Simulated assay, not measured.
Amino acid sequence: MELRHLSAFITVAEEGSFTRAGERLHLVQSAVSAAVRNLERELGVTLFERTTHVVELTDTGRLLLAEARRTLSAAESMRGVVDQLHGGLRGTVRLGVMQSHRPPWISIPRLLAGFREEYPDVRVELRCGASAAHARDLREGRLDLAFVALPAGAARSLTLTPIASQIMRLACPSGHRLAGRDSVELHELAEETFADSPADWGSRIRVDRAFEAAGVERTVHYEVGDMASIVDFVHYGLAVAILPPSVVDPAADVRLVTIREHAPSFATSIATPADRELTPAAGTLLDAIRHTAAAERRDSALPLSRGDLT
């Protein structure tokens, strides 16, 4: 079984097209098709249902895809070890970052600039997206590491290393009926109109679970894919929101009110797959992230967390 055949199989599965897979692998379509046919012949199975317009995995193909990814990952780890023995760290690391909100106390551009200076032969590919999507891509082998804001219960088959945590608070316009309060309970917010992030974002998952734990239903009228825009919706009186304090500009005309019970925490972690070893390059970047987060947290004089990191 050749690794290039596995690579072709995985790429066709991800692209849903032999043509797009060829473009991604810098191969002609016929070469990709031949690689997949050779793999099917060797395994004695059909991996794809092919029609004029659609290429879909068979049930067998879906079962074998995860194993193919694990096999390629193991091969990459072996290459990384050999590279280290020859005096240099090389390879590609696929890093997931959260959409539109950087993790507290860590600057990803500064982190990557320092990492590139020390390891110039390691390429870091950034994938921007939601925490739930990153979790899925980590499990399926499309990412090596990812920043996520998931509770542990939503992080099946992943290892979470805590980076930072904040207790989320109610954000409301300065003229809102609750703006003058020191604290509120979630049941007092049942009739409010909320702005929040999409359902697969880690922050939204945590807030939804807090309301479920409190036995309170709420209405999310505005789904916004940008934390700063959520603050603007609050500022202009269109909605209230539950947000990490760090995303609210002190100059904004927005009040932050403490939530007394069931207050969700915005806990940022770096997630890795629990069922496979990291490549040397990915492991080295993980160590750099841990070191950088600890240093920036120490410089900020803020604690790792308040509240539950799970």
Score class of each variant (00 low, 15 high):
236 Y>E: 15
214 A>P: 04
222 Y>D: 10
239 A>Q: 04
211 F>P: 06
218 R>N: 06
210 A>R: 06
233 F>M: 14
246 S>N: 05
248 V>M: 08
240 V>Q: 03
242 I>L: 08
250 P>M: 14
234 V>R: 01
236 Y>D: 15
246 S>W: 08
225 G>Y: 04
243 L>C: 07
239 A>S: 14
249 D>T: 07
215 G>P: 09
249 D>K: 09
230 I>L: 10
248 V>F: 08
247 V>D: 07
229 S>D: 13
241 A>N: 10
212 E>C: 08
211 F>E: 01
221 H>K: 04
216 V>R: 00
209 R>H: 11
241 A>G: 12
225 G>C: 07
235 H>V: 10
223 E>R: 15
224 V>P: 06
252 A>R: 11
237 G>L: 09
210 A>H: 01
225 G>H: 13
243 L>D: 01
247 V>K: 04
229 S>T: 15
223 E>M: 08
252 A>V: 05
236 Y>A: 03
224 V>C: 04
210 A>N: 09
209 R>S: 14
228 A>C: 07
246 S>Q: 10
249 D>S: 14
220 V>I: 15
216 V>P: 02
244 P>D: 00
209 R>W: 07
218 R>K: 06
211 F>A: 01
211 F>H: 02
243 L>P: 09
247 V>C: 05
218 R>T: 13
225 G>W: 04
211 F>Y: 11
223 E>T: 15
218 R>E: 02
211 F>C: 02
237 G>D: 06
246 S>D: 13
217 E>N: 06
209 R>V: 00
217 E>K: 11
229 S>I: 05
235 H>Y: 02
233 F>H: 12
251 A>H: 13
226 D>F: 09
210 A>W: 03
217 E>I: 01
235 H>K: 12
217 E>M: 07
214 A>D: 04
210 A>M: 04
214 A>C: 07
225 G>V: 11
223 E>N: 06
248 V>K: 04
244 P>A: 10
238 L>S: 14
215 G>H: 03
209 R>F: 06
209 R>K: 10
228 A>F: 15
237 G>E: 03
239 A>P: 11
209 R>Y: 05
212 E>H: 09
216 V>Y: 02
227 M>N: 08
224 V>H: 08
251 A>W: 01
229 S>Y: 02
249 D>L: 11
213 A>P: 03
233 F>S: 04
226 D>M: 11
249 D>C: 09
234 V>N: 02
